[in-house]
């Protein structure tokens, strides 16, 4: 069937049909992917272990840090609460690539690409799964932190903003594992990108404010986008809406998202050739 040009009769109907099928493909693939989050049910637990463990250990053992001159006038627990929320998402968003390799290895991915579906929907459905998972994990962490006595200074609106930053970052971070998946098609290599989490998480102001860090360490944190995301969330927990921290957090997460989604789409296109 020749392509329908925009000035020809029927063009509007064809465009509407294309849009409908694109959204329908995206929707049904997303539903399938979202089910992967809780299948098996036990897979829901590991992402919470590390953030809860570190939050509990750090908030109990390092609480005296809050009394050091130069430390903000808040409890250490409130200071590292954003890190706990962030870490839960950081550790699990990389699963998107592992699931993708599993689908490639089983042959399921090939089934998808010989269907009359929009290929962009395959990637968007993966990002939707990551977003839903980040929301769910963020919500559980939020409840746990509230029970632990963490106070969110910016209230409900602040919490919504934190979730927006977390979801944006989770989708961006998942792209790195998907790039590994599409380029290597090797589960071990995709899993090994897990090691990136530690330098990215600890070469930041996650444990102490920049003013208390050694100079060189402080300079390094300035080049790490994760610093800006943690600082943005932290501002919403302990400081309030003033300053540029929230804006920088969106800028860091948004820039990562745009760049990494572009690379995923290019990798996908290359893999299909």
């Amino acid at each position: 069937m020749p392509p329908i040009r925009s000035h020809e009769p029927g063009a509007e109907v064809a465009v509407k049909t294309m849009a409908n099928t694109f959204f329908s493909d995206w929707y049904y693939l997303s539903i399938r992917n979202i089910k992967l989050i809780w299948r098996p049910l036990l897979a829901l637990l590991p992402p919470f272990f590390m953030p809860i463990f570190f939050f509990a250990v750090n908030s109990l053992s390092l609480s005296a840090l809050a009394k050091v001159p130069g430390f903000p006038d808040v409890s250490y627990k409130d200071f590292i609460a954003p890190v706990a929320m962030f870490t839960a998402i950081f550790f699990s968003a990389g699963n998107a690539g592992i699931e993708m390799v599993q689908d490639i290895q089983s042959g399921y991915f090939k089934k998808l690409i010989i269907m009359p579906i929009n290929r962009l929907a395959i990637i968007l459905a993966k990002l939707t799964e990551v977003a839903v998972q980040a929301l769910g994990q963020g919500l559980v962490m939020l409840i746990l932190l509230l029970i632990w006595g963490v106070h969110f200074k910016t209230g409900f609106l602040g919490v919504l903003t934190i979730f927006a930053i977390l979801v944006l970052f989770a989708m961006a971070w998942s792209c790195i594992s998907m790039i590994f998946a599409l380029r290597t098609q090797n589960a071990r290599l995709v899993q090994s990108m897990f090691i990136l989490v530690f330098p990215l998480l600890y070469l930041t102001t996650s444990q102490a404010p920049k003013a208390l860090l050694p100079h060189t360490f402080g300079v390094i944190t300035g080049y790490n986008p994760v610093t800006y995301i943690i600082e943005g969330i932290r501002a919403l927990v302990i400081t309030g809406w003033g300053g540029h921290a929230v804006g920088y957090a969106f800028l860091a997460a948004g820039s990562m998202f745009v760049v990494l989604v572009t690379i995923v789409l290019l990798s996908f296109r290359k893999a299909l050739k």
Partner: peptide, 8 residues
């Protein structure tokens, strides 16, 4: 490769 979704 049979290519089934193992968790469906």
């Amino acid at each position: 490769e049979v290519g089934l979704d193992e968790v469906a």
